[in-house]
Computed example of a mutant assay.
Amino acid sequence: MLNAVENAPESATSKIGTAYLHNLCKAGNLFTAVRLLQLLCDKNIFLGPSAYNIILVAASEKNDIAILSQVFKDLIVSCQSLPSTSYLKLARGFVKTDDDVQLLRLVKEVSEMTFPSNLMVVNRIIFAFAECGQFDKALLIFEQMENLKCKPDLVTYNTVLDLLGHAGRIDEMLCEFASMKEAGIHPDFISYNTLLNQLRKVGRLDLCSVYFQDMVESGIEPDLLTYTALIGSFGQSGNIEESLRLFNEMKTKQIRPSIYIYRSLIASLKKMGKVELAMNLLEEMNASMSNLARPKDFKRTRK
């Protein structure tokens, strides 16, 4: 197999090598698949992350953490920048195991291998575990960062805030938000929007006002996502006047409303018996449908 890949035309090298790996994994011969990859790397033949992903998936299915870990480390060495799919496949490989010792050992080894850019790698590992719903494992890695010679940064905290919010662990989310400020890391619009959205979802509407005020005092401009959360929060609490004030404020700032904001306001107005005003907003929404904010407008690039 090694000779076949090595002697193949350059244009066919990856295809032939990947086919061998696929067949080996399908036959359950993961050890040989790993060895083939390593021998090819020794000869400066790199098949690409997709080839490694084949073995990562096969190792996950067999719950073979040893091979999963080894292949991921080999991939880290062979590739300067991994695609997010590789991190996700690594995280999924730990779904069936509660062996935190192996997980932390792997993260420590990867961190040492990628120094001084290890913070970015560890952040992506934490994010991948959070994306797979493995919140406890993601938090475990976060809590061990002091031992990895890399301190959490804004990206780390934003990831942790988001996963705690999605897990419904609101008090812990607020605690970590306070911790990041104590550590001298200034929250950005992503941090505040995460808090506002999660607080709204669990009905902690009083705190929405508190953190919005903190956001404004910090000099961070509210965006579409901010206004969406706030208008919904005040509407839920019955403070429709404040919802309408914020709605007009965002339009003054030339932030295009979304259909979600209109629907939220219309529902709140109807609930409070302000049917005429609700119908006026409905007409306004229908008339400006082509100019409403789209899902892509909810994303804002960090400067």
Rank of each mutant, 00 (worst) to 15 (best):
D98L: 09
N291Q: 14
F247T: 12
C79F: 12
Y157V: 01
L164A: 03
S290G: 08
I55G: 02
N197Q: 12
V95R: 15
A183T: 03
K181D: 00
S60E: 09
A8S: 08
A183N: 05
V121H: 03
V101C: 11
F72L: 07
Q144M: 11
V77I: 14
Q80V: 14
T85C: 08
R169A: 08
I67M: 06
K62T: 15
A91T: 07
Q198V: 15
V155R: 00
L104E: 07
M272D: 08
S288I: 09
P116V: 06
I261F: 09
A27H: 13
A19E: 14
P257G: 06
R105G: 01
R245P: 09
T194L: 12
D42F: 13
L30G: 04
S209R: 11
P187M: 00
L277Q: 15
S264R: 11
A128C: 04
R294K: 12
F298D: 06
A66I: 12
K299H: 14
L37T: 13
G273Y: 06
E176K: 05
A293W: 10
N291R: 15
F189E: 04
L24P: 01
S111M: 03
L90G: 02
F94M: 01
A27S: 11
A138K: 00
M289C: 11
N147I: 12
L164G: 00
I65R: 13
K201Y: 13
M1R: 09
E112K: 13
G168Q: 04
G203D: 06
I255G: 11
N280P: 07
P222T: 05
D171A: 05
S60C: 09
A27M: 14
I261K: 06
L269Q: 10
Q198R: 12
